[in-house]
Amino acid sequence: MNDNFRDIFVETNCIPQQELLDYLQDNLGPDDRRRVETHLADCEFCSDALEGLSAITEKEKIPGVIRQMKWNVLQNLRRKNRKKRKLEFYTSLVVITLVILFVALACFWIYHFVSKR
């Protein structure tokens, strides 16, 4: 009996997208289904997810929905990165201008001081 219970302690990886969808639509063979269900007993995240996904009526549209979300998220990130780079560019421009101004002023002051003597 005890050996059969060893499954209780096996830690399995989370279920990839396609397998989760196949499980939802009952497209898995017995071995794969067993693997998924063993993980579900172990992982709140996957088991919550499955519960929510089963409430979606048009499951075949899920991959498309996910692609769209991914596009939005990456687009958002790129926008943020562009903004950040722009900001960095302007900051360095200001710093360089200030340095040049300071050097020019120093030169002028030294020249002025030397020529006076």
Partner: peptide
């Protein structure tokens, strides 16, 4: 993007729940 592929469906399901 790779990270998103790993978690998007789990997050979608969790939020649906």
């Amino acid at each position: 993007g790779i990270l998103f592929d790993r978690y998007a469906i789990l997050l979608l399901g969790l939020c649906m729940k």
